[in-house]
Computed example of a mutant assay.
Amino acid sequence: MKVFSLQVFCIILHAGIFHCHPQARYTFVVEEAPYTRLCNDNTILTVNGQFPGPTLYVNKGDTIIVDVINNANYNITLHW
């Protein structure tokens, strides 16, 4: 299981003077799921069992942290 944290809009200096205080935290579990369309069976990637993935509800200027757990058989890239 691969786990990594993505900190969006969070400024952390190398000296550690400023700390990130998130207003929202989300966990995304990416995994493969069977999908049938027009009598064809395929496998698609879902986020928390959803396709497309869940909606993030935040306000402008909020700091959020998204933890992503990749249970797929290959690497992924998230586009925000």
Results as ranks from 00 to 15, higher is better:
residue 60 K to W: 04
residue 26 Y to W: 11
residue 34 P to Q: 07
residue 66 V to M: 06
residue 12 I to S: 11
residue 39 C to R: 14
residue 38 L to V: 03
residue 71 N to G: 05
residue 79 H to K: 05
residue 54 P to F: 06
residue 74 Y to T: 14
residue 10 C to Q: 08
residue 10 C to K: 06
residue 20 C to M: 02
residue 27 T to E: 09
residue 68 V to H: 05
residue 4 F to W: 15
residue 39 C to W: 13
residue 80 W to I: 04
residue 74 Y to A: 15
residue 16 G to E: 02
residue 31 E to S: 14
residue 78 L to M: 12
residue 46 T to M: 00
residue 44 I to T: 04
residue 50 Q to K: 14
residue 75 N to L: 09
residue 58 V to C: 12
residue 4 F to Q: 13
residue 49 G to K: 01
residue 26 Y to E: 11
residue 78 L to A: 04
residue 60 K to F: 06
residue 73 N to E: 13
residue 76 I to L: 15
residue 50 Q to C: 05
residue 53 G to W: 03
residue 14 H to Y: 12
residue 16 G to F: 01
residue 72 A to Q: 07
residue 3 V to E: 07
residue 29 V to W: 00
residue 27 T to I: 10
residue 20 C to R: 02
residue 4 F to N: 14
residue 50 Q to W: 00
residue 76 I to M: 05
residue 31 E to P: 00
residue 62 D to F: 05
residue 12 I to G: 08
residue 15 A to Y: 02
residue 79 H to I: 09
residue 33 A to Q: 15
residue 71 N to E: 15
residue 45 L to P: 00
residue 53 G to D: 06
residue 12 I to W: 00
residue 75 N to W: 07
residue 24 A to M: 12
residue 17 I to F: 08
residue 36 T to P: 02
residue 37 R to Y: 11
residue 70 N to R: 08
residue 40 N to H: 07
residue 63 T to L: 10
residue 76 I to N: 05
residue 17 I to C: 03
residue 2 K to A: 13
residue 47 V to A: 08
residue 39 C to K: 14
residue 55 T to S: 11
residue 14 H to I: 12
residue 8 V to H: 09
residue 75 N to V: 10
residue 21 H to K: 14
residue 24 A to W: 01
residue 75 N to H: 12
residue 35 Y to G: 04
residue 60 K to H: 10
residue 49 G to W: 03
residue 9 F to H: 12
residue 67 D to F: 09
residue 18 F to T: 14
residue 45 L to F: 07
residue 76 I to P: 07
residue 21 H to Q: 11
residue 46 T to L: 01
residue 2 K to R: 14
residue 38 L to S: 12
residue 29 V to A: 00
residue 19 H to W: 09
residue 42 N to V: 04
residue 60 K to M: 09
residue 47 V to M: 08
residue 48 N to Q: 00
residue 73 N to G: 13
residue 18 F to D: 09
residue 52 P to S: 03
residue 35 Y to R: 07
residue 43 T to M: 06
residue 17 I to Y: 07
residue 8 V to T: 07
residue 2 K to L: 13
residue 45 L to W: 00
residue 8 V to M: 11
residue 25 R to P: 00
residue 44 I to R: 10
residue 77 T to D: 03
residue 37 R to D: 09
residue 49 G to S: 03
residue 78 L to T: 04
residue 12 I to E: 15
residue 61 G to T: 05
residue 16 G to S: 08
residue 51 F to S: 06
residue 13 L to I: 00
residue 14 H to C: 06
residue 56 L to P: 05
residue 65 I to G: 06
residue 45 L to M: 04
residue 60 K to V: 14
residue 15 A to D: 14
residue 68 V to K: 04
residue 8 V to I: 15
residue 55 T to F: 07
residue 43 T to F: 03
residue 45 L to C: 04
residue 9 F to D: 15
residue 37 R to E: 12
residue 46 T to I: 00
